[in-house]
């Protein structure tokens, strides 16, 4: 079966400085893949490239077998057709580290926006779906609150609901608990666990090794823009083959983050 996502030889540079040096990665349907690695190893850049928020310098990104990184997929004529760049963005959703909720909209409006204006749902149906998702993340009673009235954990739960509202083929999570106070991390991870169990296809960058161990089917270790090691979580996190992976995990354990 064709994987949902295939990344082949992905290279990304910022001002001549390579951040990703040829990444090969595939994510199958219903698979949960965790990207781990030190800050600056390229995890976020990889996710942003996959979500077509950054232009890539080399390689290909295939979504359901179709190359969506081809510049021809971004032309006015093709971008909205199946396999086009905008169509691809519609079938993916990303949750950012800094939430990036729209501050001038209520929680409900944030979640209902894309279903309404991108996927053409009637306002009533979009609100209904949004409310359903907000209750799934436990925030139905705060549907009319603006983001500045919500805690970090609540904001990130709204952001997850907003991402799920477009019913994505692929859900990208970019260190979604890194900006949260420790006591708020649990409420967000519980929702991701629930989403993962429901059969979603997820690629997540994370520093929560314990969570990766529980939820991920596969863990990929990114180091200096190279995918150094990948495998089942018990192997990569338990008996890593690479020296760099061992060093990274030792630092994490020293910081008390391997639950």
């Amino acid at each position: 079966m064709t994987p949902v996502l295939q990344v082949e030889g992905l290279v990304k540079q910022y001002g001549g400085r390579p951040v990703l040096r040829g990444i090969d990665l595939a994510v199958a349907e219903h698979e949960v893949v965790a990207l781990i690695g030190a800050s600056g190893s390229g995890k976020s850049t990889l996710l942003r490239c996959i979500d077509l928020l950054e232009e890539i310098d080399d390689g290909r990104i295939l979504l359901d077998g179709v190359d969506v990184s081809d510049p021809r997929a971004a032309t006015r004529r093709r971008r909205n057709r199946p396999g086009g760049a905008v169509a691809a963005q519609k079938s993916m959703a990303i949750v950012f580290q800094a939430f990036n909720l729209f501050p001038h909209m209520t929680a409900l409006e944030n979640v209902a926006l894309a279903p309404r204006v991108v996927h053409g749902l009637a306002a009533g149906a979009a609100d209904e779906r949004a409310l359903e998702l907000l209750s799934r993340v436990g925030l139905a009673d705060l549907a009319d609150a603006h983001p500045d009235r919500l805690s970090g954990g609540q904001q990130q739960r709204v952001a997850i609901a907003r991402a799920l509202a477009v019913q994505p083929r692929l859900l990208l999570l970019d260190e979604i608990t890194s900006a949260l106070d420790p006591e708020l991390v649990g409420e967000v991870l519980a929702i991701v666990r629930d989403v993962a169990r429901s059969g979603a296809t997820i690629l997540m960058a994370t520093h929560e090794m314990g969570f990766a161990k529980q939820v991920a089917d596969r863990v990929c270790f990114l180091d200096g823009g190279v995918l150094l090691e990948e495998g089942p979580p018990e192997q990569v996190l338990g008996e890593p083959r690479e020296e760099r992976t061992r060093q990274f995990l030792a630092r994490i354990i020293a910081a008390g983050r391997l639950g």
Binding site: M92, F96, A98, N100, F102, H104, A114, V118, R162
Partner: peptide, 28 residues
């Protein structure tokens, strides 16, 4: 810029992102 990124990642077009996300905040 992260606001535009959030809008684009949800599949909003350039014009939709400008009209629904960027301008309301800009005017305020």
């Amino acid at each position: 810029p992260s606001q535009r990124a959030a809008a684009r990642s949800l599949g909003l077009s350039h014009g939709q992102a400008l009209r629904l996300v960027i301008l309301p905040q800009a005017v305020r």
